[in-house]
Design a protein around this nucleic acid. Structure first.
Length: 307
DNA sequence: GCCCAGGTGAAGC
DNA sequence: GCTTCACATGGG
């Protein structure tokens, strides 16, 4: 049902054009469905043969064709670099694949979802979303984020016949909300963490922009000082927003993948697992992680087709 | 009812 | 140090 990856010419293309509501990008090995549903971003939905979402201040509709990606916005755009950046269209994907370990689990995982990419999201949105993610299923995270945007985001213009859309709320806006209002978005105990981090961000005590300039370990340390942010959520933000491709978030799925695929019939503690991921997967370990995560979920659906 | 979900923080050894 | 538990909420 979803589009699969396609092949086409290579980048770069010019990102600045005369203002237009649609733009066509040549793409190669890009599985849009896998990328937008693999638990990196939580605001995309498939409708009318296309993917609809919000990136920053833009309502966006994406359609994958055999040789290209067509993007449509609700207002004219001159400079499309924000979309190229978000989708990482200028990333050398082929070169990256060569750096992953040449072992059976990675071969199986990359074959199962060839064309799965890592996005480059807004740090605040990514941080806030993953604070809401703990012990929640992806479907539920999507629901919570949707409610949060409807209630605290800014309405965006959408083309006729499309439902209303909202920006992701700023830290300042969430900081002005009450914990009760946030809990009404069904986020439960996570409301206290989100509110506190929003306040720290709105007052400048935490500066998401500054982290981009830091080495990955310092950036991780800064993130983990925030309430509700441990090693897993910190690594998600490092990987999905800041583009630290060595970050390797280990959640229940990835832990299961590592144990099953690399240590079958052996009892290994989490420290051993940590040592393994730190040394085995190389400079683009985060990509390996995303493939393993998606692979486990796809495999689960084949065996047990729920959801 | 029971178990689990892209975890974290605090309390207990 | 490591292990155990509470924390909201909804789907299967």
């Amino acid at each position: 049902m979803h589009d699969k990856s396609v092949s086409s010419v290579a980048y770069p293309v010019c990102s600045v054009t005369s203002p237009s509501r649609t733009q066509i990008f040549p793409i190669k090995d890009y599985d849009l469905a896998a990328t937008l549903t693999s638990g990196q971003a939580f605001r995309w939905r498939f409708e009318e043969q296309s993917w609809i979402g919000v990136i920053g201040q833009y309502w966006v509709r994406l359609r994958l064709d055999p040789f290209s990606l067509t993007a449509e916005t609700s207002k004219p755009v001159r400079d499309w670099s924000w979309l190229i950046h978000y989708l990482q269209l200028d990333f050398d994907f082929t070169q990256m694949l060569l750096t992953l370990p040449d072992d059976e689990p990675i071969r199986a995982a990359t074959n199962a979802c060839r064309g799965l990419r890592l996005l480059r999201q807004d740090p605040w949105e990514c941080l806030a979303s993953f604070i809401l993610s703990s012990t929640k299923q992806i479907v539920q995270i999507q629901q919570i984020v949707e409610l949060l945007c409807q209630r605290f985001g800014q309405p965006l213009a959408t083309p006729a016949a499309f439902s209303p859309a909202y920006t992701f709320p700023t830290a300042a806006r969430i900081a002005r909300a009450t914990e009760t209002e946030l809990r009404a978005c069904k986020m439960g105990f996570r409301a206290r963490y989100l509110l506190e981090v929003a306040r720290l961000t709105a007052t400048g005590q935490f500066d998401p922009i500054r982290l981009q300039q830091l080495p990955v370990d310092l950036a991780r340390h800064e993130l983990m000082r925030l309430p509700g942010v441990g090693p897993k959520i910190a690594d998600c933000v490092l990987l999905f927003a800041y583009g630290f491709l060595s970050a390797f978030p280990v959640d229940v799925w990835v832990a299961k993948a590592l144990r099953q695929l690399y240590f079958p019939r052996r009892r290994v503690n989490s420290q051993r697992i940590q040592r393994f991921v730190a040394t085995h997967f190389g400079p683009n370990a985060g990509y390996a992680q995303q493939y393993l995560f998606h692979y486990m979920r796809v495999k689960r659906k084949l065996i047990d087709p729920r959801e």
